[in-house]
Design a protein around this nucleic acid. Structure first.
Length: 215
DNA sequence: CACCAGGCAAGTA
DNA sequence: TACTTGCATGGT
């Protein structure tokens, strides 16, 4: 039977690192908030912002919706871009209130395509953020592409360097069967191996499990 | 000190 | 359409 490189790679990663058990959040609402806050930002900084929100009890739709943009900005300050991210969170909350009566779960009940379309219509939610929310919050089988995915797979010449988000995503969809559990682990493993072995500064991945691809 | 981190939108020509 | 720039903190 045909064993493609993308499946092979998944096995190598899960054998090397084990299940990652993502997303690191207690509720689906927290997943969505984290997905917006982590845009172009180190996760450790996002944690500080999430902790501030948790301390204040603002990690629910109602409590966060009651905050002003400036109050929200102050709380999420450590995550960087705090003014624009506060507005993005408010845009997200506004959509949930107007279209889903404040129930994020109702959005997840929609078809994957429809839910993705709605998320993308929110100012400040792009493809990666939308897909992260769908996969990790709603358990929809969409493959999340991020900077690590692009860097790792282009370095190993499995995708073109200039590939855009959609084309990279399509490569994975063509190679894998749509399984939310597996997509979940795969992306989490890509981030894991990327953080440890595929940073911008270290082009040579010494000790990286993906060295098997270099042969 | 310079560079980077789990993007996205707006501006320019 | 195809680049470029702004957003901003905290870690290495």
């Amino acid at each position: 039977m045909a064993m493609n490189r993308f499946l092979e790679l998944y096995d190598v990663l899960i054998d090397s690192f084990g299940p990652q058990e993502w997303w690191p959040a207690e509720t689906t609402f927290e997943v969505a908030v984290g997905a917006i806050l982590t845009q172009n930002t180190n996760w450790t900084n996002v944690c500080k912002a999430i902790d501030n929100l948790r301390q204040g009890g603002f990690l629910t739709f109602e409590r966060m919706a009651a905050l002003s943009v400036d109050e929200l900005a102050g709380l999420i300050r450590p995550s960087g871009y705090y003014n624009i991210k506060a507005q993005r969170l408010k845009n997200f909350l506004e959509m949930i209130r107007d279209d889903y009566d404040g129930e994020l779960e109702s959005l997840f009940q929609e078809s994957t395509d429809r839910a993705r379309e709605v998320l993308l219509s929110v100012r400040g939610i792009g493809p990666e953020t939308a897909d992260s929310i769908l996969l990790y919050g709603g358990n929809h089988p969409v493959f999340v592409v991020d900077a690590y995915t692009h860097r790792i797979f282009s370095r190993h010449q499995l995708i073109e360097e200039e590939s855009d988000y959609h084309s990279i995503q399509q490569v994975f969809l063509d190679a894998l069967s749509p399984d939310a559990e597996m997509f979940n682990e795969y992306h989490a493993l890509i981030v894991r191996v990327g953080k440890e072995y595929c940073k911008k500064k270290k082009p040579l991945c010494d000790g990286c499990p993906l060295r098997v691809l270099c042969e």
